[in-house]
């Protein structure tokens, strides 16, 4: 469980807080979309959840551990895996397997334990066979899955994804979302920072932040059906949702965020 209690955070003491009185409770196994316009504070929330930034006021608890507690730091950072937007900039190792090994090596685990975790993690994200490849020869989607593998090798129970698909082509995006879904299926918690309506739809719950404050916390279906709020948060509505809205105004009964088949069925049942 990840718990934010009245968290306030400043980057600069003379500026406005990046996160302001923010409270949130994310249960194990939830998949939550974290949404907000650029500069709203959502990336700050992502870093606070991993203990990479520490709250100036309030506290963040990860599985009951206070992120400010220095003696719990390794446990917090192992429990919460972080995947950033730019695939290239989070790879440390000179080869795929050495990169996955980076975290466990930092924990000073014995070599055979590292080897076992590395093999499992590479397997879990579908990069088997590429162990010896140099990272710059991977596709962008493979690089993002490598970053997920790096978190899995730390035995992460929660994944914080900061716009992990923004730079990817459709195939790469799908492969990354598949890897995330697999992590979820095994009971992992996912916090997914995104402004893509179709990715929000993959999460049951949406948490929206604006100017560092929580402005929405509820079912993502409710967010996606609220055009005004979406616009204020910088989310492009899915075109099908916009079609559905126009159709339902004309008296056709269609789900608010439908797929193609559902619209066609609503029109020609």
């Amino acid at each position: 469980m990840i718990l934010f209690e009245e968290v306030t955070f400043w980057y600069r003491h003379d500026g406005a807080p990046a996160v302001d009185g923010f409270s949130l409770r994310i249960g194990d196994g939830e998949r939550v979309a974290l949404v907000g316009p650029n500069g709203s504070g959502k990336s700050t929330v992502a870093l606070l959840a991993d203990g990479l930034l520490l709250p100036a006021r309030g506290r963040v608890l990860v599985d009951g551990l206070d992120t400010r507690d220095a003696s719990a730091r390794d446990r917090v950072r192992s429990a919460v895996g972080l995947v950033l937007q730019n695939p290239e900039n989070q790879i440390v190792g000179a080869t795929v397997e050495e990169d996955v090994a980076f975290g466990p090596e930092n924990l000073a685990l014995p070599p055979d334990e590292i080897r076992r975790r590395v093999n499992e993690a590479i397997d879990a994200v579908g990069l088997s066979g590429l162990e010896r490849r140099e990272p710059h020869t991977l596709s962008e989607g493979q690089k993002q899955r490598l970053a997920i593998a790096g978190a899995l090798a730390m035995r992460a129970r929660h994944l914080v994804l900061d716009e992990p698909t923004a730079m990817l082509d459709p195939a790469g995006r799908e492969s990354v979302l598949d890897a995330v879904a697999r992590f979820r299926a095994e009971g992992g918690t996912v916090i997914h920072v995104t402004h893509d309506a179709s990715e929000i739809a993959l999460c049951e719950r949406a948490v929206c932040i604006r100017d560092g404050r929580l402005v929405f916390d509820g079912a993502s279906a409710d967010l996606l059906a609220d055009a005004a709020l979406m616009d204020a948060l910088g989310i492009e509505p899915s075109p099908l949702a916009a079609v559905a809205k126009a159709l339902s105004e004309a008296g056709v009964s269609v789900p608010p965020v439908p797929d193609v088949e559902e619209v066609v069925r609503a029109l020609w049942r």
């Binding site: 075109p239 099908l240 916009a242 079609v243 809205k245 126009a246 159709l247 004309a250 056709v252 619209v263 029109l267 020609w268």
Partner: peptide, 16 residues
């Protein structure tokens, strides 16, 4: 555009 598509679909439903 979504609104355009919705109109076209509604019109087509009327005729088919």
């Amino acid at each position: 555009e979504p609104s355009e598509v919705a109109r076209a679909l509604l019109a087509a439903r009327g005729t088919s």
